[in-house]
Amino acid sequence: MTGQHRIVVLGAGYAGLAAAGRLASKARGARITVVDARTDFVERVRLHQQAAGQQIPAWSLRELLDSKKIHFVCARATEIDTVGKRVSLDTATVLDYDTLVYALGSTADRTSVPGLAEHAYSVSTPEEASRFGAPSGTVLVVGAGATGIEMAAELAESLHDSRVCLLSPEEPGAWLSPRARKHIRRVLERLGVEIRSDAKVLEVTAAGVRLADGTLIEAAATVWTAGFAVPDLARRSGLSVDGTGRVLVDAALRSISHPDVYAAGDSAVIAGPGGRDLRMACATALPTGKYAADAIVARLRGAEPGKLRFRYVVQCLSLGRRDGLIQVLHADDSPARTVLTGRPAAWVKEQVVRGAGWAARP
């Protein structure tokens, strides 16, 4: 490669850092710039621990990126000019690019029910997790997906003066195998979590939540884990997106409307095995971030990128600090029969989280 190709990576989460690190090692001669509104990389998959009052590790993005000669700009991208190939930042700075990697990840859904933005906490960002504190009284966790299950277990184990209630229209871990669901329920009940798997929340109030049947459940705090959204920057900038605002990409993770833009992680719609779109997860962000970088490097060298080879292997859930669940998966993300539970699963989950953190860092 000759000359200096300018690559701007928006987002320094798992996908963005994975892409930047791979580009730094393979895109010789390119100028790589990472833009993120935060100064530190925090393992997002630990934010339920932070909300429960635990200290979680953080790494300076500037130090991580400087060590690999990657330029770091602490700012928020406000506009992408896809014609002029420029990114405007909230610091009144404009960055020019030849190739853009869009990896802004996801945030909590704050609009799906009335009162959510005003009265509920979330654990989708470090700032939101740190605001939760340690309330006395009833804490409602809305949503029985992976985040809700982990949050309810962590709070029940850590907050001894609080009653934790998990609300969802479905059984906790409904997408997992019967053995996995049984273990989740057994552990949550042992920790004292009240499970309501018939509860559809229609409104969040300062006093608690209102259900579809009109019942008001009072609470000292409500934590919302029942959905995620993506930033609207791609939509506002004219990129082709789906109904939720995620970037539509081809098989090489290149925007179908703007070939100089690649997208990875939660903010992209990526086809996976079995015709399913890849789910929002750290397990998706890391490999797709690295693959996007490989695809960019291949095209800079005048070659076509190889096929994205992706499959899920396991899904890991922590159930407090002393128990966990490892669900073995088929290639299409459906659950296999094999599960690991208890302290061995908690140990494996911790190693996976640590490994993901190391894999993301350049």
Rank of each mutant, 00 (worst) to 15 (best):
259 P>N: 14
56 I>A: 06
49 Q>C: 02
342 G>T: 03
62 R>N: 13
11 G>R: 09
82 T>N: 13
322 R>G: 13
328 V>S: 14
129 A>R: 07
8 V>C: 09
32 I>T: 08
312 Y>W: 10
83 V>D: 13
82 T>W: 07
225 T>M: 10
5 H>S: 11
235 R>N: 07
18 A>I: 02
73 V>K: 14
148 G>N: 01
208 G>W: 02
59 W>Y: 15
15 A>L: 05
1 M>T: 12
166 L>H: 07
8 V>G: 09
154 E>Q: 14
37 A>Q: 15
160 H>T: 15
43 E>P: 13
152 A>F: 05
43 E>R: 05
121 Y>R: 05
338 T>C: 00
199 A>W: 06
176 L>M: 15
128 E>W: 02
265 G>W: 04
116 L>P: 04
62 R>I: 08
291 Y>A: 09
90 D>I: 08
111 T>P: 05
189 E>D: 10
89 L>I: 08
312 Y>K: 05
250 D>T: 00
28 R>V: 14
270 I>V: 15
104 L>V: 11
12 A>K: 00
20 A>D: 04
312 Y>L: 11
347 W>D: 15
300 L>W: 00
33 T>Y: 09
353 V>A: 15
319 L>W: 00
89 L>E: 10
221 A>Q: 12
247 V>F: 07
187 V>R: 15
307 K>S: 12
356 A>T: 00
136 S>P: 02
251 A>Q: 14
189 E>Q: 15
144 A>E: 01
87 V>C: 05
235 R>F: 06
29 G>W: 01
151 M>D: 10
336 A>P: 00
333 D>P: 03
26 K>A: 15
141 V>L: 00
231 P>A: 11
160 H>G: 13
41 F>T: 03
213 D>F: 03
348 V>R: 14
307 K>I: 07
274 G>Q: 09
170 E>I: 05
335 P>S: 00
222 T>I: 01
62 R>F: 11
205 T>Q: 06
72 F>T: 08
222 T>M: 08
268 A>F: 09
40 D>A: 03
244 T>E: 11
291 Y>P: 03
217 I>P: 06
121 Y>A: 11
137 G>D: 04
323 D>H: 05
327 Q>H: 02
291 Y>L: 03
273 P>F: 04
55 Q>E: 14
290 K>E: 12
117 A>I: 08
280 M>C: 10
179 R>A: 15
352 V>K: 12
3 G>L: 12
238 G>T: 11
176 L>Y: 02
257 S>V: 03
130 S>P: 01
331 A>K: 11
29 G>R: 04
195 I>G: 04
18 A>T: 14
224 W>D: 10
152 A>Q: 03
295 A>D: 10
328 V>E: 12
166 L>V: 02
80 I>T: 11
120 A>T: 00
312 Y>A: 13
262 Y>M: 07
77 A>P: 11
23 L>M: 03
4 Q>W: 06
252 A>C: 10
292 A>N: 01
91 T>M: 04
57 P>A: 10
24 A>M: 01
156 A>T: 06
89 L>G: 05
355 G>V: 00
310 F>W: 01
247 V>Y: 10
113 V>H: 00
265 G>N: 01
44 R>L: 12
103 A>K: 01
169 P>W: 04
140 L>R: 08
121 Y>V: 00
222 T>L: 08
348 V>C: 06
